[in-house]
């Protein structure tokens, strides 16, 4: 009986996870967003537009501020190139550099590049149910089922109406909390719910983390195949 219960529980949990994937992942999306990085001295906001197809291909162009404008980033599989218009250079970012933070934010290149669906990487179970701000929240614990997950476990606080997490915590193998993401401002776009505001925080470091705000998002838009080539970086 107990066994049966946990099984349905687990099923419920993985269903939730799949529903989150359905909301968050897509085969094709175009996102215009702004990233606000809080430094010790001041904050800066960078806007960009990215085109993503599946989990393998992604192309980002920075729009502002002036300093970053025209800088482009191309990800194909596990390779990453950046293009700098100021001196017309394409630089490959590899190995050690992938672990560096992106533009001084609390996100590393690897964090950005790891775009796999949660259900591809993790098994989920429901840990508890809570009510936060009057909303029914399920707390999901995700454990990696593949070897190469960057974070062995995650904990998701999922709003059971929208099937989006309001908070996510990433843990090391030992259970040490490493990063926390807060999601808010859910909106319905093309029949799915999506968080319009996110805050990423490396909890081991001091600071307020990095805010990410979505200005516009379009699913299943038209993305020409040629932009996922190095040639497109220079255009």
């Amino acid at each position: 009986m107990v066994c049966f219960c946990t099984l349905t529980y687990a099923q419920a949990a993985s269903e939730i996870m799949q529903k989150i994937d359905k909301n968050m992942s897509s085969d094709n999306r175009i996102v215009e967003s702004s990233m606000t990085i809080h430094g010790r001295r001041n904050s800066r906001t960078i806007t960009s537009i990215s085109y993503t197809v599946g989990t393998e291909k992604s192309f980002t162009e920075y729009l502002s501020p002036a300093r970053e404008k025209g800088t482009k980033m191309l990800k194909l599989d596990d390779k990453l190139w950046t293009y700098y218009p100021a001196n017309d250079r394409i630089v490959q970012i590899s190995g050690h550099m992938l672990r560096q933070s992106v533009m001084g934010s609390d996100l590393s290149y690897e964090d950005i590049m790891d775009d796999r669906k949660l259900s591809d990487v993790y098994d989920a179970e429901t840990e508890s149910e809570e009510v936060i701000d009057g909303r029914a929240i399920k707390v999901l614990k995700l454990s990696a089922k593949v070897d190469d997950a960057a974070y062995e476990t995650r904990r998701l606080w999922v709003d059971t109406e929208y099937y989006l997490p309001i908070k996510e915590e990433l843990y090391a193998k030992s259970g040490q909390l490493l990063k926390r993401t807060t999601l808010s401002d859910f909106k319905k776009i093309d029949g799915r719910w999506f968080p319009m505001k996110l805050n990423f925080k490396d909890v081991l470091k001091q600071g307020q983390g990095t805010d990410w705000e979505i200005i516009s998002i379009e699913f299943n838009g038209e993305i020409p195949e040629y932009i996922f080539t190095k040639g497109a970086l220079k255009k």
Binding site: I37, R44, I46, Y84, N87, R89, V91, S101, V102, M103
Partner: peptide, 16 residues
């Protein structure tokens, strides 16, 4: 040659 570095505000730059 280029230097892959960051500005004092954290932006990544590749001056040549």
């Amino acid at each position: 040659i280029s230097i892959l570095g960051s500005t004092m505000y954290g932006s990544m730059v590749v001056p040549t």
